[in-house]
């Protein structure tokens, strides 16, 4: 708003300017000090305290204002047999013995090993949608396998004696070099699948044969390749990239 003022004393103006400049200096100091304080504060899983908490708050706020029931939007199916983009080979160093491969499952007192055939025998579900990497790229991919919620129902796992779900699902590669943990809500999402096919071809070793997790409501880092172990827990199991400074939730 433009306000004209007459008969202003020059001294008064000087004083005002000095005051404003001082405020400015304090402002700059606060910004620099604040930035440094956040940066050098105690680190939780390789992220400064405030920023790690901000990750968690963002997730809580988002859960309040949005519905987690949405599906990741359907995309045209890539040409059959197209090699899906592959990124990262942590946990894939040991060779998978496909003949005797089995997945270890632990839920409460239950503990058993499942051969890959068990997953093939189940109802097959099939989706085609965006696969999004936290680095920033995305690619349309189709995948097929056993829906994770079907898997839980079929083997009657994932629930505690009182009938409520465990809060987290943990997954690990056979060599335990790569591991993720995911909230139960995202694991129960209909598009979350224990996949043995991508782009209508059997999984390649680089893409996690013989069985991998496909969870399009999460960044690629959560889509663990070559599942060696699936387990349920109420305390958050370790997570490879969360330990290295990334948002644990990493979901859309």
């Amino acid at each position: 708003m433009k306000l004209k003022k007459n008969n202003i004393d020059e001294k008064q103006l000087k004083k005002r300017l000095t005051g404003s400049i001082l405020t400015g200096i304090i402002f700059v100091a606060v910004v620099i000090f604040g930035f440094r304080a956040i940066r050098s504060s105690e680190r939780i899983e390789d992220t400064p305290y405030a920023l790690r908490h901000s990750f968690e708050w963002n997730q809580k706020i988002w859960a309040k204002i949005s519905s987690s029931k949405n599906l990741s939007v359907k995309k045209p199916r890539p040409k059959k047999g197209t090699a899906p983009r592959q990124n990262g080979d942590i946990g894939l160093q040991s060779l998978a013995d496909s003949k005797n491969y089995s997945v270890e499952v632990i839920s409460g007192n239950k503990s058993f090993k499942l051969p890959i055939a068990a997953f093939h025998a189940a109802d097959k579900v099939d989706y085609s949608t965006d696969f999004r990497c936290i680095e920033g790229w995305s690619e349309e991919m189709s995948y097929a396998g056993m829906r994770f919620s079907d898997f839980m129902k079929f083997y009657d796992i994932g629930k505690k004696p009182d009938g409520s779900y465990y809060a987290y699902v943990g997954l690990e590669t056979p060599d335990k070099e790569y591991y993720v943990s995911i909230d139960m809500e995202s694991m129960l999402h209909p598009q979350t699948v224990l996949a043995y096919e991508m782009n209508e071809a059997p999984l390649s070793l680089a893409n996690g044969a013989p069985l991998r997790l496909m969870i399009p409501v999460k960044y690629g880092i959560k889509n663990l390749k070559r599942i060696g172990k699936i387990f349920f827990s109420d305390t958050r199991p370790r997570d490879y990239w969360a330990e290295r400074g990334y948002d644990w939730y990493a979901g859309f």
Partner: peptide
């Protein structure tokens, strides 16, 4: 940031 829960916006 949220291409699934806000999928309509992304689209």
């Amino acid at each position: 940031y949220k291409p699934v829960t806000m999928g309509w916006l992304t689209a």
